[in-house]
Design a protein around this nucleic acid. Structure first.
Length: 878
DNA sequence: TGAAAGACGTA
DNA sequence: CGTACGTCTTTCAT
């Protein structure tokens, strides 16, 4: 039986987790109007539904203590005697919580004289024997002893219950240095304060582990207690009985007689009405949909019945049969590699007539590697993580012909479908079978990898026929090759200097503290400088400064507004606040980068190819597309991005003024085209035209104005906005715009015309044919319509720039590969690339980058590329 | 606990 | 009353 087929049993210690939730959530904020406290219930259920949603158990139970008394207190009266009576506010919540669970169809187990953990231990042990994958969720450390190959402990972090840490055998060994079964021996020596079980004085975890490792077991250690020297040896000898008692008490019972066994705990449908009723009583609203979602039930009101999609039952093939199958497969093959923590777990393949699948084993890998690497056309649902996982296994993937997630995004960039299940509903109007935990005898197993591939193929077929020709070209010619390039970049990562980051971080930390102290002094008391709400009180109530721009709940304290305030009514607090913000912001960014650095000393971001509505990429975990650059000091962060081991230097390449160049191309404006062909500085050229002077006589002030105007054009700037930014009268801004358009009239005509075109078509289009729908352009709501107009103005320009950069990116990658160069692209920041250059390859790489960026699109104006070189990103960025 | 709001970093 | 993003912190709901 494979893991995927094994049923999963989840057993939860309701008492300990609700208790933690009770202390994690402020009790005042969680009570019903008649005064019933609900924080423990809410916190527990919130954690619980997340757990069920994430782990999808097939069998489930929650255990509770019945009282403080148990066989342990009879054996040792002091057991847990140090615990203060749990507050009445908490106790009252337990029966209500049990009611909730019962309404949700979750078995609630308790047994007089035993603790919840004994029930967990019994069920976990039986479950393991009966072939379950068992998850134990408890806030009691003693449950560590239960962990085995098949039993994993989920243990809440220090604060609250939102984060659960997984303890499998490896994690326990890593943390304690001994196998899980021996954890109680450590605990017996060290003692457990919360259970009122004193340990051997002066013996902590370190000593306990050392002794147990040395003697092999607690028993052997105690037998040889006379051989331990020193004070700790004496202490041990004086506490032998205590240690034995601890060990007896912390042993969880695995044979508690229970009315049910694991097999009786199959997840069953929740009673929707009962859940609604009790949640209404507890005044839980947001929790309701989450519960229905986690338990796969329908909230009830509007049920659309869709047929459940069907697929052939995939054959499970061995490596040789798989190799034979792919060799004879015709047409595009659907491929699904299921992942477990970034490594392949199973693979499923589907042709038009059959589906096959297998666990991912070395034999399967070797059997399929050749076909995977070949040009044989393949279709995926979200290929990038799968391609990356295969790459880590040393398997290249070629022929990545279609990705249904990318295709779905191209057609509906505003509401990209995130999963294959979404697309099966949209494209096939069927429901993808999902493992339905609410059904006693599941009608539908979850779809297997082979079936997922089958559906992926079918979705792709429908998408292909429904996709406009030009959009299909964007997918084939831009997005698919980009996908592979991005996978390479993410795998490569970028090297960062921990030393540089750490040094800068502590510097900024000290500065932030000092600034905060000065700021408090300036107003005579402390205040949370990170709280806009508290700052408003200080600025507008205490200091009586003039009111700033309104926000939804008061007045803004953003940097621009504070700078304005400084002009009208300066107060020392303002400058200190601004500088504090700057220092803490930089520190945050630095610390985030530091923690994101992998064991290889590099940061591996994830590029979200469907992350924008315009065609741009986005970058997450961490976002490497918003690393500071504007201030001299912030560039020290860029200086921490360095060339990595085995490489010689970093190369940066960026398009200068690519959006204005696209504007020149799209509008065909002769003046703007001439500006770019003249080689003159753009803003100087434009300034000369607008103000009617020689280029040499364009003053810095004039240049600033036309520069703001040019950039603003791309965003749909108004006279109001322009006046605001340039801090000039609105009338002057209006005049500037009129002068600008008098000289560059085709630009205005283009912008107007493109919005009108979009209004008629319902979408905008980039130079390459990427579309973005704009239904709001015909809205009767003026705010909606005007917002859509500005976005529609911008979309073809920003989108065309994104298209061009993508083309450049994958061509550079391909050229570097075919020239057999080791150098590789690491980062893309919209109009900039960062390349890691190997020794001796600079000239070749620079030539490739320059050429591929410049010729990525054929415009009426040249694409200018700036190249920089240096040992770090800051140096290279000049 | 998790969603929303506010602030701010980039192109 | 300027487009496109992601992340962090605080506040608030419940």
């Amino acid at each position: 039986m494979t893991d995927a087929e094994k049923p999963t049993l989840l057993v939860v210690d309701g008492h300990s987790l609700a208790y933690r939730a009770f202390y994690a959530l402020p009790v005042d904020n969680f009570s019903t109007k008649d005064g019933q406290h609900t924080n423990g219930i809410y916190g527990f259920l919130s954690m619980f539904v997340n757990l069920v949603k994430a782990e999808k158990p097939t069998h489930l139970a929650v255990a509770f203590d019945t009282s403080r008394q148990s066989f342990r207190t009879r054996e040792y009266a002091e057991y847990k005697a140090n615990r203060s009576e749990s507050p009445a506010e908490f106790k009252g919540q337990i029966p209500l919580l049990q009611d909730c669970l019962e309404a949700m169809g979750v078995p609630v187990l308790k047994k007089e004289d035993f603790e919840a953990d004994d029930i967990l231990a019994t069920l976990a042990t039986q479950g393991e024997e009966q072939g379950f994958t068992v998850l134990v969720c408890s806030g009691d450390r003693d449950t560590i002893q239960l962990v085995t190959e098949d039993i994993t402990l989920l243990y809440p972090n220090v604060q609250g219950v939102s984060q659960l840490k997984r303890y499998d055998t490896d994690a326990v060994v890593e943390k304690y240095g001994l196998p899980p079964a021996q954890y109680p021996e450590i605990a017996a020596l060290v003692g457990e304060t919360s259970d009122n079980l004193p340990g051997v004085p002066k013996v902590g975890e370190k000593t306990a582990v050392k002794w147990l490792t040395q003697w092999g077991s607690l028993e052997a250690l105690l037998d040889n207690a006379d051989k331990i020297t020193g004070v700790v040896g004496n202490n041990l000898r004086e506490h032998l009985d205590g240690v034995r008692r601890n060990r007896t008490l912390n042993r969880l019972l695995r044979d508690v007689e229970l009315p049910v066994g694991p097999g009786d705990l199959a997840v069953k449908p929740l009673d929707a009405q009962a859940v609604r009723d009790i949640f209404a009583r507890l005044e839980f609203r947001t929790l309701l949909p989450r519960v229905f979602d986690a338990f796969g039930a329908d909230a009830g009101d509007s049920e659309e019945v869709r047929p459940t999609a069907t697929a052939p039952t995939p054959s499970r093939l061995d490596a040789d049969a798989l190799a034979a199958w792919v060799a004879s497969a015709e047409g595009t093959v659907g491929v699904t590699v299921t992942l477990a923590g970034g490594t392949p777990a199973q693979i499923g393949l589907a042709s038009s007539s059959a589906a096959v699948e297998a666990d991912w084993t070395p034999a399967v890998r070797d059997a399929l590697a050749g076909w995977l690497a070949s040009d044989a056309p393949k279709v995926f649902a979200d290929a990038k993580p799968q391609v990356k996982a295969l790459a880590r296994e040393g398997v290249g993937v070629g022929g990545v012909a279609f990705d249904v997630i990318l295709a779905g995004w191209l057609v509906r960039p505003s509401f990209p479908d995130k999963t294959l299940a979404d697309l099966v509903e949209r494209a096939l109007d069927e429901k993808l079978p999902v493992a339905d935990p609410t059904q006693l005898v599941p009608e539908t197993e979850g779809a297997t990898p082979g079936q997922l591939s089958w559906f992926t193929r079918r979705v792709a077929e429908v998408q292909r026929t429904e996709m406009p020709e030009r959009v299909a070209e964007v997918l084939d010619d831009i997005e698919m090759p980009t996908l592979t390039a991005l996978a390479d970049m993410e795998l490569a990562g970028v090297a960062v200097s921990h030393e540089k980051l750490a040094g800068f971080s502590s510097e900024l930390g000290a500065r932030a503290d000092a600034l905060a102290r000065d700021a408090y002094a300036a107003i005579g008391h402390e205040v949370n400088l990170g709280s806009p709400k508290q700052l408003q009180e200080v600025l507008f109530d205490e200091l009586q400064l003039p009111k700033t721009r309104k926000t939804k709940s008061g007045y803004t304290t953003d940097a621009a507004a504070l700078a304005d305030l400084q002009e009208s009514a300066d107060h020392p607090f303002l400058d200190l606040l601004l500088r504090h913000r700057e220092a803490t912001k930089l520190k945050q960014i630095i610390d985030a980068l530091d923690t994101a650095t992998g064991a290889d000393g590099r940061i591996h971001t994830t590029y979200v190819q469907t992350g924008s509505q315009t065609g741009r990429l986005s970058s997450t975990d961490p976002n490497l597309q918003n690393i500071p650059i504007r201030t001299e000091e912030s560039r020290r962060i860029r200086a921490a991005f360095e060339v990595g081991e085995g490489y010689e230097t970093l190369l940066t390449a960026d398009y200068s003024q690519i959006e204005m160049r696209i504007m020149a191309h799209l509008s065909g404006d002769p003046g703007l085209i001439e500006a770019f062909n003249s080689g003159e500085d753009l803003h100087r050229f434009v300034g000369a035209r607008v103000f009617g002077v020689e280029p040499a006589d364009v003053t810095p002030a004039m240049r600033t104005k036309v520069k703001a105007m040019s950039y603003g054009l791309v965003y749909g700037l108004s006279a109001f906005g322009l006046s605001k930014q340039l801090r000039i009268e609105q009338s002057e801004a209006k005049k500037l715009m009129l002068e600008y358009f008098a000289r560059f009239g085709a630009v205005r005509d283009y912008l107007r015309g493109s919005v009108e075109q979009a209004r008629q078509d319902g979408y905008t289009e980039t130079i390459f044919g990427r579309r973005r729908p704009f239904p709001d352009l015909t809205s009767m709501n003026r705010v909606l319509r005007e917002n859509a107009e500005r976005a529609a103005l911008n979309a073809p320009i920003q989108g065309s720039a994104a298209d061009i950069m993508k083309v450049a990116l994958f061509r550079i990658r391909d050229d570097l590969a075919s020239a057999q160069l080791r150098s590789r692209v690491l980062l893309q920041i919209h109009d900039e690339l960062v390349v890691e250059v190997a020794a001796g390859e600079w000239d070749a790489v620079e030539q490739i980058v320059r050429a591929r960026m410049a010729d990525a699109a054929e415009l009426t104006v040249p694409l200018d590329v700036q190249i920089g070189r240096g040992g770090d990103w800051d140096e290279a960025g000049h």
